[in-house]
Amino acid sequence: MSLYDDTVEVLRGYGDQDELRELYLAHLAAHPDGVWRSCGDGHVTASALVVDPERERVLLTLHGKIHKWLQMGGHCESGDRTLAGAALREATEESGIASLRLLRGGPVRLDRHLTPCAWHLDVQYAALAPAGAVETLSDESLDLRWFGYDEVAKVADASVVRLLEGTRALL
C-alpha cells in the first residue's frame, strides 16, 4: 500500500470533523501527488503532540520559520509508508525522544492552515513520551520546551489548544 492509499484509508476511517475530512479527501482525489510537498495546491502533513500524561505536560517546539510554539510535525517523505509513521518520525526527529509511541485510535484532529510553502492539510496525532524522557533540540527548532496543560493556551495558538483538548479526552 502506498502512502497516498494509507492516507485516504486513514481519512475515510476518521470519524470526526466531517466537512474538513471531506475537503482533505476531495483534495487527494484531485491531486494524486497531494501527500507530497511538491503539490503546490496544498499537501497533507503529519504531526504529533508529544504528551507526558503522568506529569500533565506537553512538549512544544518553537518553529524556526513560523516562530510559534507548535506540536512536532511536517512534510511526508519518500520513505514514509504510513501517515502515522510519518507523524511518529517527525515527532521523534524534532523532539530527540527515541521511544515515543502514538496514542491508539488514529488521528486526534485535522487542521488546515496556510504556510509560506502552501496549504497544509495536517493530520494530527498524539505521541506518548516514556517516563524520564529527555528532549534534544533539533536544527529545525529555535527552542524545545515542556509546558503544563494549563500553560499551553498562553503560548500556543488555538489549533494546538484544540489538539491538546482532543488528546486529553482520549487519555
Rank of each mutant, 00 (worst) to 15 (best):
D6L: 12
G106L: 09
W69D: 04
A126D: 11
R12L: 15
L170D: 13
P116S: 11
W69S: 01
G96D: 10
G15D: 05
G13C: 10
R101A: 13
L59P: 00
G106E: 09
V123W: 03
A86Q: 14
Q124M: 06
T7A: 14
L121K: 00
L70S: 04
E22S: 12
D150H: 08
E22Q: 14
V50K: 01
A133T: 07
G74W: 04
K68S: 15
G105I: 08
S138L: 12
G96W: 10
L28H: 03
V161C: 06
A86R: 07
G74K: 01
A84I: 09
L60G: 01
A129W: 02
D6F: 06
H31A: 14
E135W: 05
V134Q: 13
Y149V: 15
A87E: 09
E54F: 00
H120S: 13
H27V: 12
G132A: 02
T115K: 00
E140R: 01
L137Y: 05
L171K: 06
E140Q: 05
L70V: 09
L121H: 05
E94F: 04
R168P: 00
Q17K: 01
A86D: 13
Y149W: 15
G42M: 06
S47W: 04
A46F: 00
Y125V: 03
G40R: 12
L20R: 10
A131F: 03
W36K: 07
E90Y: 06
G132W: 02
V44M: 00
A169C: 05
R21L: 15
G106R: 02
T7N: 11
E77A: 01
M1A: 11
G73I: 00
G40P: 06
V10K: 03
R21H: 10
A153L: 15
L88N: 05
V134R: 10
E165D: 15
G166N: 13
A84V: 05
T45V: 09
D5T: 13
G85C: 11
V51T: 00
A169G: 05
H63F: 02
A133W: 02
E135S: 14
